[in-house]
Design a binder for these strands. Structure first.
Lengths: 151, 151
DNA sequence: TTTATTTCAATGTTATAACATTAATTTTGC
DNA sequence: GCAAAATTAATGTTATAACATTGAAATAAA
């Protein structure tokens, strides 16, 4: 159908504007598609993101700043998201002994089990863009890279 | 450089996962790029979105629901965003005479003047994806359309 | 060493998204 | 016409983004 149909807008100033609107629209569409997978485990996509990062470093703990650097959204409010994960028992936190300004944040067994259940739906998550062939997915990535830094 | 460099992640499960992560990352990057244009007028991108929609229908007022249907994010909290625009004097609202469940929302002169100032930076906004050629922008739109509905 | 600067996490504020509920009003079914 | 159902806007709640500030601790400069 196309973005013009989806947002009831027939005309765009130019192809660049159309592409940028399409990108915004598709982002929201994609977030919506994956939301239910996380909701089944009572976490949000941002909480999943942090859990995934902490599993990657396990058993090495990460500081708040190290987590933030690895997140897709650099401005994310890592402290408070971590606190919500602590409240759910999915991660734990201690003051770092070597540098008491930092905190050592580590995923718990419960957090790892939660991720394992979500792993089982990995195909479903990758399948969000399943309408694209492998070649097209690569092409999309390349266009997005180029959009950001002009290669 | 590419998404792998930008988020310090060398490996992805597959091209589809890489593309979806790239899409999320690029969305945030693009929103950030345009934020300052709106901030100069002391509005947010969502408030701009509603102003733009109301200008399109002017002098015909729109209801909350009609605005929401035209927004990129269908779940947006239109009522409260409109209230903030009213507080700034950029739109006005009246109960609809024909159907008292509805409200007639209309952009004010002040709101139109705000948009005119932003219009002057239109090129800057379209230029967000300026690293892409016209052909590549079209290609990007087509890939995003296909990702959503498989053509 | 003592002070100034830098680093880092936490916290406060506003705007928004997503979701649920409510209340007013209109439409539908009988 | 009247009761039930549907529609619409408003509001309440939680999570988050973006931004600013604070306070503690480490590092650099004097």
């Amino acid at each position: 159908m196309g973005i013009d149909h989806d947002i009831h807008q027939a005309r765009f100033r130019n192809e660049h504007q159309k592409a940028s609107i399409n990108l915004i629209y598709t982002y929201h569409w994609m977030v919506e598609k994956t939301r239910q997978i996380f909701a089944a485990e009572d976490i949000t996509s941002q909480q999943f993101n942090i859990l995934r990062i902490l599993r990657g470093s396990h058993p090495q703990p990460l500081s708040t700043l190290q987590i933030r650097e690895r997140m897709l959204d650099k401005m994310s409010d890592t402290s408070r998201i971590v606190d919500r994960l602590i409240a759910k028992g999915l991660v734990k936190k201690n003051v770092c002994k070597a540098d008491r300004r930092l905190v050592d944040i580590m995923i718990t067994d419960k957090g790892r089990k939660t991720l394992e259940r979500i792993d089982e739906r990995q195909d479903e998550m990758d399948g969000v863009l399943g309408h694209l062939s492998k070649k097209e997915a690569t092409q999309l990535s390349e266009l997005l890279d180029k959009a950001r830094d002009g290669k």
